[in-house]
Write a protein that binds this DNA or RNA. Structure first.
Length: 552
RNA sequence: UGCCCGAUAGUAUAAAGGUAGUACGACGGUUUUUGGUACCGUUUGUCUAGGUUCGAAUCCUGGUCGGGCAACCA
């Protein structure tokens, strides 16, 4: 392939650094999730960026858990994050934890205290907030700011030793209370939390804040390019300040715009609410934008990587249309999914001139997109078939290429039939459609000379298996639920899940393989749900087929 | 109203002072035993006002609009 994609701005930076020999030709990135929730498609963008960059330039990527807030974090999340990153197809160099550096971080804090650049503050959170001033007014120093190095050293050691209750004291960096950048107004470095940590247990009762953990962790690992999202831009001067004062490895932070997808929400907090309030089944509900939800829905790792490649990387806020995600999964599945027939909304069709007790076996290929079709399977055919209710109309409009009295269609991989009549039940619903078939129109051996415009799918009544089929639609009714008035949950789409308890499926689908995508011909792509069993098959619709037929 | 970031078709994303291009979407057509796929075509864009320049999406200045920052969250 000579196709050359232009570089995104971060790749440009990396190439410049590589050329100038800034890090000796080394590229080391990191993916640093906090283990307080499940990964979502937005994280996938970051994962693809970080791992992709390292891969492209012969570097490596660490997986680092930013676990500095024990009250929000859990091993359940650690495990799911590792599973999701692996599933996406990436291998990390080292699995690391900010909590691994608690000792080192403590020592670094002591260094700053000794340099007179950090102090213990006894103020309450409220007092500190007031003293920080506002964006338009500078902050004011308090009495604690001028404590002696010795006193600070002692107090900080006492904090660590557990002599104070939560909130009694904090360690702050002495930077600039008048800075126009609020992040520099003596930011907190450590707070007291007598809380159990999922890795360090009860060893610590003081925990470093993000600003005194993230950059230092980057530096300890000698990360070359620390990539994060836009909201951390104001933190960058502080990131650099700590590194400079400490004289440690100069990792550099770069920021890109996070992914926003329309008709969903992307914050862990909101996703957690949906789970806790039972608006969805769990974090891996197929309607969720989580990696695990997309996986259960039938998305493939390749399709998500392709999506992340296509959306690009820049610094401006964006709102990506879900239709692009859908395009990516269709593109992948079209080439790989085996075709099968399933009737979701059945109506019976009887072929009046086909022998009642006859069963015929018809061949149908697995995948027309591949040379040779990747083999195929035998389809039993009889005089009674299930077809899709909307493939018949009592009064078909002009360009309706399906059934209606007098109209002809081909039954996929079988015969051409002609609709002769139909019957209704007491409620006036079509109950049965009567057709005749053209014996010499058999698929592959058609000598009838008849050309029909439409082909429909079908399942033989006596040979049909059944399955529950779940159809999903967008989770929200509006493009940007977070930006609407009131609570975002008011904008949930009440029809985001439609369950079809009994669909008729061709026999071979009883052997469907978990994790594999199937195309139900003319209906979309489907995959087995995790709750599917041999006794009760359950299929999730991953995505519909693109529908070029607009009614009327 | 302090500081910071940003603004290119409907949505994203290129063009590093020199032809505004690509993808998705939409629309139309050809092919088709999936109204799918494939292929072809059409459509719509540089926030604004100045300035620098032979030449500006790009550089400069002002404005407008969007976003971020004052958590013992990350």
């Amino acid at each position: 392939m000579s196709e050359e994609r232009s570089l995104n701005f971060i790749e440009e930076i990396v190439e410049e650094d590589l050329q100038s020999g800034k890090y000796g030709g080394r590229v080391l990135t990191r993916f640093p999730p906090e283990p307080n929730g499940y990964l979502h498609i937005g994280h996938a963008k970051s994962i693809c960026l970080n791992f992709g960059l390292a891969h492209k330039y012969g570097g490596k990527t660490n997986l680092r858990f930013d676990d500095t807030n024990p009250v929000k974090e859990d091993v359940e999340y650690v495990d799911s994050i590792k599973e999701d990153v692996k599933w996406l197809g990436f291998d990390w160099a080292d699995e690391l934890y900010a909590s691994d550096y608690f000792d080192t971080l403590y020592d670094l804090a002591v260094i700053l205290i000794k340099k007179g650049l950090a102090y213990v503050d006894d103020s309450t959170a409220e007092e500190i907030a007031v003293q920080k001033g506002t964006p338009t007014e500078p902050g004011t120093p308090n009495q604690y700011r001028s404590r002696s190095v010795e006193k600070n050293l002692q107090l900080f050691a006492d904090m660590k030793a557990g002599k104070y209750p939560d909130g009694a004291k904090v360690l702050r960096a002495k930077v600039d209370l008048a800075s126009p950048n609020m992040q520099l107004r003596d930011p907190l470095m450590y707070r007291i939390k007598h809380a159990h940590h999922h890795r360090t247990g009860d060893q610590w009762c003081i925990y470093p804040m993000y600003d005194f953990a993230h950059g230092q962790s980057d530096s300890i690992e000698e990360i070359t390019h620390s990539i994060c999202t836009l909201e951390f831009i104001p933190h960058r001067p502080l990131y650099d300040w700590f590194i400079e004062q400490l004289g440690i490895f100069p990792s550099k932070q770069y920021e890109f715009a996070r992914l926003n997808l329309n008709y969903t929400v992307m914050s862990k907090r909101k996703l957690l609410q949906l789970v806790e309030d039972n608006h969805v089944e769990d974090w891996d509900d197929p309607r969720m934008p989580t990696i695990s939800g997309l996986r259960r829905r039938g998305y493939t790792p390749a399709s998500i990587r392709d999506f992340c490649e296509r959306i690009g990387v820049a610094k401006r806020e964006n709102m990506i249309d879900v239709s692009l995600l859908e395009f990516c999964i269709r593109e992948d599945l079209n080439k790989t999914a085996w075709r099968r027939m399933a009737v979701l909304d059945p109506v019976k069709l009887v072929i009046t001139n086909y022998p009642i007790d006859k069963t015929e076996s018809l061949f149908s290929e697995n995948n027309p997109e591949v040379e040779g079709g990747e083999g195929g399977r035998e389809l039993p055919f009889s005089n009674e078939l299930w077809i899709e209710r909307d493939d018949f109309m009592e009064e078909p409009p002009k360009k309706f290429f399906r059934l209606g009295v007098g109209l002809m269609v081909r039954l996929k991989s079988a015969y051409i039939i002609k609709c002769e009549s139909f019957t209704k039940d007491e409620q006036g619903n079509v109950k049965e459609i009567q057709c005749t078939y053209i014996p010499d129109s058999k698929s592959g051996h058609d000598t009838s000379g008849i050309n029909v415009k439409g082909t429909i799918h079908w399942v033989s009544v006596p040979h049909a298996h059944t399955a529950e089929v779940r159809l999903y639609d967008r989770l929200f009714r509006v493009e940007d639920p977070s930006n609407e008035d009131g609570d975002f949950k008011e904008y949930l789409n009440p029809d985001s899940l439609q369950i079809i308890p009994k669909a008729y499926i061709e026999a071979d689908l009883a052997n469907a393989i978990p994790g594999k995508g199937y195309q139900f011909i003319r209906k979309g792509y489907f995959t087995l749900d995790k709750h599917s069993t041999a006794g009760k098959l359950v299929f999730n619709r991953t995505v519909t087929l693109k529908d070029g037929w607009v009614k009327k």
